[in-house]
Design a protein around this nucleic acid. Structure first.
Lengths: 112, 112
DNA sequence: AATCGTTATATCTAAGCAAATATAGCGAAA
DNA sequence: TTTCGCTATATTTGCTTAGATATAACGATT
């Protein structure tokens, strides 16, 4: 039996969570489906929860992460801004780097 | 306004959490006070919660992390084993390294 | 003007988890 | 043999949080 090191990182703005793993999943699903409600369904979360998450992200980010439209063809929709895309890219990169880093730290506990 | 990167790491054994920040706090308080109930009081957590945490730690670790004595002078007590001490040391070191690492990653988001 | 699938929001209900409470058992020491 | 403060554990109570439900508003298209 071996010990494992796990981690979770997130980006904060003004002591509010801006982006964590769940929020990134949601944003990616919005990118793929073109709407918040479809994204919520695809991730098996209630529309309300998804809306709260997205609202919180947009409120704490420096610039809008999505553009949401109400009404019109198809009832409306949501899509990521370039800013949102660059945030996701940065998060993914830092997250991966963190995993790799912790992998190297494993040697510090493997003899324990 | 600047974005910050926060993180949390923990050590798992067999998909159970072995050590996280809260558990390390508890173990350190046990070390200082010599008893689980005193440690719980000093950290403002209920004895039950503290006991559950310690029980879980001892159950998932390869070797006992504390030695608990019931009855006797002073009613009993708990103290860390050498093994427990080395676990705490390893956790603290890895945790600190992780923070330092993420500090360096900050440059990846400071322009966003 | 009617339709449609959204976004947006309020309200109520259920469930899970944390906290409080209670109590048994222990063993050294007086 | 009684006292003491602790470990150990069960049970209940309360509170927060998640989930379900309902509904208003929107605007391009027909």
């Amino acid at each position: 039996m071996k010990y494992k090191i796990k981690s979770r990182i997130w980006i904060e703005a003004d002591n509010n969570v801006l982006l964590g793993e769940g929020r990134v999943h949601l944003l990616k699903a919005i990118q793929e489906t073109g709407s918040l409600s479809k994204a919520a369904r695809s991730l098996n979360l209630s529309y309300k929860k998804a809306w709260n998450l997205l609202d919180s992200v947009n409120k704490s980010a420096k610039k809008p992460v999505t553009v949401n439209s109400i009404g019109g063809k198809g009832g409306g929709g949501a899509q990521l801004t370039d800013y949102g895309l660059s945030l996701i890219r940065a998060f993914d990169e830092i997250n991966k780097n963190c995993w790799d880093f912790l992998d190297k730290q494993l040697e510090k506990i493997e003899h324990i």
